[in-house]
């Protein structure tokens, strides 16, 4: 299927993405937090700060702050939502699945059900320069998990 112009745009900026972008449900800072990460995309200046509370090995509260485009902010919001209640190992696996989806062309159907909403980023894969926007929060997460482990 080749889309052009408006159809392609609608596919990139699906309504659900705009909703997540506008949503404040997971915006802010988790206090107290024992998992923290920070990342920026030097090319576009987008910034994401991730804070999370880990209780009994599970992410009980996940928040993000910073600024960025619809794609990076919506992706951050969906990630925060998907992570709450997950163990650190599960979080790591979700990050792996997300990166496989965005970078390796893994089919949307292969995403675990926790990442149902993330399927709405499907259209981003058609815009290679925007893929990095969707990855920022997840890369921050991966780094934060690695730092916590070491």
């Amino acid at each position: 299927m080749t889309l052009e112009g408006d159809a392609e745009l609608q596919d990139l900026y699906r309504d659900v993405l705009i909703d997540y972008f506008r949503s404040t449900a997971h915006k802010g800072v988790a206090e107290p937090a024992n998992l923290r990460g920070r990342g920026a995309n030097p090319i576009c200046g987008d910034e994401v700060e991730l804070t999370a509370a880990v209780e009994d090995g599970r992410l009980s509260k996940v928040r993000f702050s910073g600024h960025g485009c619809v794609i990076s902010q919506a992706s951050s919001a969906m990630m925060a939502e998907a992570l709450e209640g997950k163990t650190l190992e599960e979080a790591r696996k979700l990050a792996g699945a997300f990166k496989a989806f965005m970078l390796e062309g893994a089919p949307a159907a292969a995403l675990p059900e926790e990442l149902d909403e993330v399927r709405s980023l499907d259209g981003v894969r058609r815009f290679p320069v925007r893929i990095k926007c969707s990855l920022l929060a997840w890369n921050v997460l991966i780094q934060a998990l690695e730092e916590r482990q070491s």
């Binding site: 112009g5 408006d6 745009l9 990139l12 576009c44 200046g45 960025g68």
Partner: peptide
């Protein structure tokens, strides 16, 4: 965000820079 603005312009064939 300027990137999102630039994306709409691109869909109209208009090349501008953002960031």
């Amino acid at each position: 965000h300027p990137h999102d603005v630039g994306q709409i312009f691109d869909a109209e064939g208009v090349a501008i820079r953002v960031g």
